[in-house]
Design a protein around this nucleic acid. Sequence first.
DNA 1: TATTGTACCGAACAGATCGTTCCGTATCGG
DNA 2: CCGATACGGAACGATCTGTTCGGTACAATA
Lengths: 190, 190
Amino acid sequence: MDRRQKKTREAIFQAFTELLSEKHYNQIAVQDIIDRADIGRTTFYAHFETKEYLLKDLCEELFGHIIDTAMGLPHTHYHYSCCSDTDSVFLHLLRHLQENDRNILELLSSQNNEIFIRYFKSNLKQLILRQYADKGLFAVSALPEDYLVNHISSSFVETVGWWLSQGMKEPPEAVNGYFLAVIETILKQE
Amino acid sequence: MDRRQKKTREAIFQAFTELLSEKHYNQIAVQDIIDRADIGRTTFYAHFETKEYLLKDLCEELFGHIIDTAMGLPHTHYHYSCCSDTDSVFLHLLRHLQENDRNILELLSSQNNEIFIRYFKSNLKQLILRQYADKGLFAVSALPEDYLVNHISSSFVETVGWWLSQGMKEPPEAVNGYFLAVIETILKQE
DNA sequence: TATTGTACCGAACAGATCGTTCCGTATCGG
DNA sequence: CCGATACGGAACGATCTGTTCGGTACAATA
């Protein structure tokens, strides 16, 4: 990929992320992004068809990483792991958010949280399905599986949102404890 | 209130509600509402300062009613009650939604659900606080109260959303059963 | 190094939407 | 019946959008 393209794309992402933490998405004009990124109008539209597509690409870049690592894909073995093997995937996510993904946290706590929450939940559902449903780890088998998956992912995202609203005072372990307490009826212990 | 005002306001609400069930909120132009409601441009801006305020007023009108009845306010006694006294407030809400508030359900299942979900949750929190927190009905007292209230309201809204996504095939009683099953750890039995 | 392709820039464009203004008309409440 | 007020229609400047064009700067390749 051309250095110029990569540099421009990064500048746009950076400017957009900054603006998202300041204004609401609807109030951000393309001109704002252009000015902040210090690029030409033509250049922006050469990279992204519209503001919506820019948002979509940003989301995929942000959440793709955290979910990939949580999935336990091969390439995670080459990184330093902050969690022991016995920790739950949720604690792993909380720690990872706190340590490496502050930009996600910032966007989740911004005025635009709904946009990112949708992506977060959608990715979490896949993760939960892969992690639990396949292995029959749902304790309440009488309830529809998609209902349970939806409930767990929503509860986790809500937990993270609450954590943020409290200023992240509590350690990830405590928050994980809260979360496990409210869904213990559903999830079998690992 | 002037008949003309009331009539115009109703026409705007009606047109707006229709449009919301067709398009996404962001894609609705003021001109669309004006055309659908068959009013003048000046008239719209005489009633609502902006599209945002129109949305806010619509939400207050929609959710104000259902929450008021659920709160058990005096005026509910003069209505026919579909629930016996021993039914939970959640079953009451589910039945009320199914029978009387199909416009809320339609908007909750529309492309604009995030907007209405925010209002729904906000109202539910007040309801839950009034219904349970005051009476010490939280079983897991070790967890922060606001965390629990947030969890319950979110779970209920998610439950309704799931119910809708399934085409509301199941009766309110079954859905209420699912909901109580996933939050039974938190809520003491009534 | 010279060349060729490609990314970028700047200015300008038409089109859509917004919120406001002015003035004439129609309708309401008393 | 009359004063008040809500409505309608047309037009306004302002803002944002997405595109076009011609020229410039930079990257990869021979």
